[in-house]
């Protein structure tokens, strides 16, 4: 069936809830309103107020309560309305969600999936465009997943919900309705911790995820016209990271670049570049470049394009690397 990413997410949530009555959705406006992006549309009507809970406006309590639910065997899928508002829940996520398995020697696990829209590019209000995935990737115990298409969203969300580990599931707002894709009706899982080579090429490896995948694709098409064949790796799971796929690709292409929306400093690009340096140094024909958001606060909508990496910035870096 042809559907957008947000529809794929909605369908997955419905199917997972039908499959497993331990799954509870809670968050702000997820009930009657169906979520501000309609990701939970129709679920309140289908599953009732005990399973689709409109909570008070309190992010720490949303995640804290989700943790408490897991103590009694439930598998909540809380929604934080925007990633920019997840910080009040940081203590719950970092101090508890991520480490309860370890700090109870496996007695208590926290199999919850925290969904939140993230990323720039939709001309949103302040605090609605952040891309702070790296903050979570440094926390042992967390799994961070980002889909880049409706098909991936369905398979990755199902796998996240079924995972025994806590997952931060970041949904790129720019891609929610950007394209429609044929998505199978039957539930399926895409493996977590696995990157996907979404375009093959022999000259240069681009590692990206989420809303940067379409950007990388556009750049790759333009580069192909100039005779440069770009390989694109969609990381899909940011942590734990599938380093093998990255390293194998870079060993073939000899050139690597990371494209992400988050600020450059201490972004995941640094981690990826370090990995390539550790494991593929002698295959490199040039430095690992990073095309990223700048180390500034995401600008207001009129100037947002200065922040957000587009195909032109990627192409510029491609030329720099090819000429190195």
């Amino acid at each position: 069936m042809n559907m957008t990413m947000v529809q794929a997410i909605n369908r997955t949530l419905a199917q997972e809830m039908e499959r497993d009555d331990r799954i509870i959705i809670l968050g702000e406006d997820v009930g009657r309103d169906g979520g501000v992006f309609r990701a939970t549309d129709g679920l309140f009507e289908a599953f009732g107020p005990e399973r689709v809970i409109d909570t008070p406006l309190a992010e720490s309590a949303i995640i804290g309560a989700s943790i408490g639910m897991t103590a009694l065997g439930l598998r909540p899928v809380p929604e934080i309305q925007f990633m920019g508002f997840i910080y009040p829940a940081f203590n719950q996520i970092i101090s508890h969600v991520a480490r309860l398995r370890n700090r109870t020697r496996g007695r208590f696990t926290v199999p919850l999936t925290i969904r939140t829209p993230y990323g720039a590019g939709v001309k949103a209000l302040e605090h609605h465009s952040e891309s702070t995935e790296a903050l979570f990737c440094q926390v042992p115990g967390l799994t961070v997943v980002v889909p880049s298409s409706p098909y991936d969203a369905k398979g990755l969300l199902a796998a996240s919900i079924r995972s025994e580990d806590p997952v931060i599931f970041l949904e790129p707002t720019k891609l929610y309705r950007a394209e429609k894709q044929d998505v199978p009706e039957d539930p399926y899982e895409l493996p977590l911790r696995r990157a996907a080579v979404v375009r093959e090429g022999k000259d240069l490896t681009v590692v990206a995820w989420g809303a940067m995948i379409p950007v990388a694709r556009k750049a790759a098409e333009a580069a192909a016209a100039d005779g440069v064949e770009i390989e694109i790796i969609d990381l899909r799971t940011l942590c734990p990271m599938d380093r093998d796929t990255i390293v194998a690709s870079v060993k073939r292409t000899g050139r690597a670049m990371v494209v992400h929306e988050a600020p450059k400093t201490c972004g995941l690009g640094a981690e990826i570049a370090a990995t390539i340096g550790e494991r593929a140094l002698l295959s490199l024909n040039g430095p690992v470049l990073r095309v990223t958001g700048h180390d500034i606060t995401v600008p207001l909508p009129k100037s947002e394009d200065h922040y957000y990496p587009g195909p032109e910035r990627v192409l510029r870096a491609v030329r720099q690397l090819m000429e190195y």
């Binding site: 309560a65 639910m69 103590a71």
Partner: peptide, 8 residues
């Protein structure tokens, strides 16, 4: 808040 979730 965790205890509240357990209550729910």
């Amino acid at each position: 808040p965790q205890s509240v979730g357990a209550g729910l």
